[in-house]
């Protein structure tokens, strides 16, 4: 297999794509939003449970998507746990920068999370796939901002 393809489909991505973590509904979700990538028809729902002091206690997702979008959603549900709203916002910004190769980055305090997410940096070279990687993140952001729907078009 060509190396650039290996950059895109790293083992971690294939693993999370095959066995996504936290892929289920969340009974006591405080927030949720629907995301859609109209380009490929992929749809997902992201559920969040915030604690009374606005810390993310749990994140889960449901839906169908390619390996990249599923792995990205799966990794997101793991790194977001325990984050305050401000930290979640900052992580979203940094992930967006990682996936697109554009934008400001300040990863202070988020070094470990960004390390884990680095496997998704390969999408940068595939502009069509950036949307696959960011769909779950945009949807989480919409959920936290109390928007019901988001589309990555």
């Amino acid at each position: 297999m060509s190396d650039d393809l290996r950059d895109l489909y790293q083992e971690v991505i294939l693993d999370h794509g095959r066995h996504p973590r936290n892929k289920h509904t969340l009974e006591h979700a405080s927030h949720l939003a629907h995301g859609e990538n109209p380009l490929c028809g992929d749809k997902l729902i992201v559920y969040v449970k915030l604690s009374p002091d606005n810390v993310i206690e749990e994140v889960s997702f449901e839906g169908q998507g390619c390996a990249i979008s599923t792995a990205s959603a799966s990794l997101m549900t793991e790194v977001m746990v325990g984050k305050s709203l401000a930290e979640a916002e900052k992580l979203f910004g940094n992930f967006h920068a990682l996936a697109t190769g554009e934008g400001e980055t300040d990863i202070t305090g988020l070094e470990d999370d960004m390390d884990r997410l680095e496997v998704l940096a390969g999408v940068r070279d595939y502009p069509v796939r950036v949307k696959c990687a960011t769909l779950a993140w945009h949807t989480l952001s919409a959920a936290l901002h109390d928007q019901q729907k988001v589309s990555t078009e």
């Binding site: 489909y9 794509g17 490929c40 992929d42 998507g65 390619c66 390996a67 979008s69 599923t70 796939r129």
Partner: peptide
């Protein structure tokens, strides 16, 4: 495999 990954 998802169609998107197939095409890739």
């Amino acid at each position: 495999a998802h169609p998107h990954d197939i095409a890739q």
